[in-house]
Structure formats: structure tokens, C-alpha cells
Design a protein around this nucleic acid. Structure first.
Length: 170
DNA sequence: TTAGTGATATCC
DNA sequence: GATATCACTAAA
């Protein structure tokens, strides 16, 4: 199982390494769901205009400033929960958005498939029902521009901070 | 292509 | 207090 130490570094290092890892969700009834991560995106601090933290700390995004391994679960468009894992040490607002898994394309569908909700916001990875495992899989990784960030500067939109399994994305 | 959905941030 | 915005999805 991945420990918080895995996330105690730059999101640009952690994000590509999460590709091929397994998201494990243990339901209260004991059942387990496992999905292999196929797509992530890096959100890197206040200087990244696509990152929620670029306007400074607010009540919503303060989770980004918390300790590495903390989960940031955010409700988008009133409908979809988006799952992020905080990277870098406390006080540095960085995170990795888990965008897609094998069999669940799209961040909203992913959380729905796993049963992730805002109840997990601010909880620590591994301390709650959700954890990530490494089964040794090292897929080929492609770098792509991030999506859904039209409000960011053109410069930041152009950054190749989206990472995907070369064989599993479309 | 467009409507839906509700928390959050920003503006009176 | 009110409105505008949004790291999306499903239906058409």
C-alpha cells in the first residue's frame, strides 16, 4: 500500500507514477473494489492558474495546503465528486487529480464507481476506506495537456501536466 | 449541443 | 442576501 511518504514530493513526480497503481475502496460491508488508475493530472501551487489554490487559500481549497496523502474531494457542477490526493509538504498547495480508471472514464464516473463522496474530504489516504496499492505494474505513460481548465492562462493550459496509460486512454 | 445541479466565491 | 462560476455527464 502506498504511504503518505509517496506523496511527499512534487506533484509532477507523483502524478505519472500513480498511473498503473490500484485504487482500493473497502465498503462498510466488507466488499472491496479495485480499479487501476489510467489517468491523472497535476495541479501545482498558487502559480499554476489552473489550480484551485492560485487565488490564495480559501475554505474550499485549504485542503490543498494540508499534509501529503490527504484526500481532496470536491463537488463539481453540483453533481460530480472529483478525487484528488495532496502532494508536497504541509503549506504547499499541490495535488494530483485522479481523472480516470480502467473501466471508468471520467473523474465523475470514477468516484461514482468507487462510492467516493465528500465524506472522504480531508481524510488521509489509507486511514479511511480508500487506499492505493502498487502491484508492480509499470505501464507506458503519455503526457497530454490538461482538460476543463479554460479559465487558466494560455500558458498554463499548454502545460503537459496530464498523464495517462498509453494503452488505456482514448 | 445543451441542460442540469448545488457548493463556493464574489459581488452588491 | 444574490448571482455567477465551475477540474462534468447524460441525453439528444
Amino acid at each position: 500500500m502506498l504511504t503518505p511518504a509517496f506523496f511527499d514530493r512534487d506533484c509532477l513526480e507523483a502524478a505519472p507514477e500513480l498511473i498503473g497503481k490500484i485504487l482500493v475502496m473497502r465498503a462498510p460491508d466488507g466488499t472491496e473494489r479495485r480499479l487501476r488508475i489510467t489517468e491523472t493530472e497535476a495541479y501545482r501551487g498558487e502559480t499554476d492558474t489552473a489550480c484551485h489554490a492560485h487565488v490564495g487559500k480559501t475554505k474550499r481549497n485549504e485542503v490543498l495546503y494540508m499534509a501529503p496523502g490527504t484526500l481532496y474531494v470536491y463537488l463539481c457542477y453540483g453533481v460530480h465528486w472529483l478525487l484528488n490526493v495532496i502532494t508536497e509538504k504541509e503549506g504547499v498547495p499541490q495535488g494530483v487529480l485522479i481523472r480516470a480508471c480502467a473501466g471508468a472514464a471520467g473523474p465523475g464516473r470514477l468516484t461514482k464507481a468507487l462510492g467516493v463522496t465528500g465524506a472522504l474530504n480531508r481524510t488521509m489516504l489509507g486511514a479511511g476506506p480508500l487506499s492505493i496499492e502498487d502491484d508492480g505494474c509499470r505501464p507506458e505513460i503519455v503526457r497530454l495537456p490538461r482538460v476543463g481548465i479554460g479559465y487558466a492562462s494560455l500558458e498554463d493550459q499548454a502545460r503537459l501536466w496530464r498523464f495517462a496509460d498509453a494503452k488505456n486512454h482514448r
